[in-house]
């Protein structure tokens, strides 16, 4: 019995270390407006909002990639659904943020359920390729949507409204709304990972045959996770549209899907805090390297390779190792 008690305490310690790190990141974000005010840099809020949106998307992707071993290479489609949900509803005079999110989630749930059900009939590289194909289908659908600017996209008349007010027109308010969404979704994702459902999802990643041998058919659970992940990602799209005040198919290009995977891998797969950290580091590094040289993609690639070679569990893995070494 003693061993059991030991484990019951051992795991949560690691869990809470990750949650502490997440809280630290959230606190850092919360303080960002202060830095913006001190440095008098108006763009900092916009950059921050963009990072928050990608943090949500990376976390959502990690839910299936890291915890469910489903490498979706088409997740940018959901960024697009979120963004176009804002543009489409706005053009009909429906401006409420919550309605925008609801519509984005609905679109994404339908798309994820259909494409997920088909994609999950395959495994491994085939799953990657087929999700990529579906992502491209969504991309070209919006490219051909001339009412919303087709290839070029379309500017938003205005940002989403919050309870009838145009509060989001302030970059500061928009930033904090995005932060609140990230924190709420982090809490939801953390609960899911530790729930009955999460255990089945992770168990399927570990050994699908074993899951069937205890009477659970993995498909339904994997598909449900796929849908949840798509819906969460679309929230990031809603934020991105508002941040840029512009939507275009560029949100859903396969490069974007690749970037999301990079963020998850960089942070350490199967680690929600890591995905958030991965998004922060990837975007900051991109911006910084882009300032240094126009060949920044090459440098970024080198960094990624080093990361994968020397810290297969990503940034958070490296941190956890450092902490372990100090003890």
């Amino acid at each position: 019995m003693s061993a059991f008690v030991q484990s019951a305490t051992r795991r949560p310690v690691l869990m809470s270390a990750r949650i502490w790190l997440a809280l630290l990141i959230f606190a850092g974000f919360a303080a960002l407006p202060l830095i913006a005010a001190l440095t008098d840099d108006p763009f900092l809020m916009l950059i921050g909002t963009r990072i928050l949106a990608y943090a949500i998307a990376a976390m959502a992707l990690d839910l299936i990639l890291g915890y469910g071993a489903m490498v979706s290479f088409g997740h940018a489609a959901y960024l697009g659904f979120g963004a176009y949900a804002v543009a489409i509803l706005n053009s009909y005079g429906v401006t409420d943020l919550l309605v925008h999110i609801l519509f984005a989630v609905l679109l994404s749930a339908v798309f994820a359920a259909i494409t997920g059900a088909i994609s999950l009939r395959t495994r491994g590289v085939y799953f990657i390729m087929i999700t990529l194909a579906f992502g491209q289908m969504a991309y070209f659908f919006f490219v051909s949507l001339s009412a919303y600017g087709g290839d070029d996209g379309t500017p938003l008349q205005s940002r989403s409204t919050l309870f009838g007010r145009d509060a989001l027109e302030s970059d500061l308010v928009m930033f904090y709304v995005a932060l609140a969404l990230l924190i709420a979704l982090f809490a939801v994702a953390t609960r899911i990972v530790g729930s009955r459902f999460g255990r089945v999802l992770i168990g399927t990643r570990e050994n699908p045959v074993r899951m069937e041998a205890i009477g659970l058919s993995p498909f339904r659970y994997q598909l449900t996770a796929f849908v949840i992940s798509g819906c969460m990602t679309s929230v990031a799209g809603v934020i991105l549209a508002n941040q840029a005040e512009f939507v275009s198919p560029a949100f859903m290009s396969w490069h974007r899907s690749g970037e999301l995977i990079v963020m998850v891998v960089l942070g350490g797969i199967g680690n929600l805090t890591g995905a958030i950290g991965g998004a922060v580091v990837a975007l900051l590094l991109e911006d910084w390297l882009a300032m240094l040289t126009e060949h920044w993609r090459l440098l970024f690639g080198v960094f990624l390779i080093l990361m994968v070679l020397y810290s297969p569990h990503g940034i958070t893995g490296a941190l956890e190792r450092l902490k372990g070494a100090r003890k």
Binding site: F4, S7, A8, R11, P12, R191, I192, G194, S195, R196, F197, G198, R199, V200, G203, I214, G215, L216, Y221, T224
Partner: peptide
């Protein structure tokens, strides 16, 4: 963990695994 290997089998036979929020541990 060894316990989790067995507990997930118990879970499969008792109640739904579509529970998303309560900590299963």
């Amino acid at each position: 963990s060894v316990l989790e290997n067995v507990a997930i089998a118990v879970q499969a036979r008792s109640g739904s695994s579509y529970r998303f929020f309560a900590p299963v541990a």
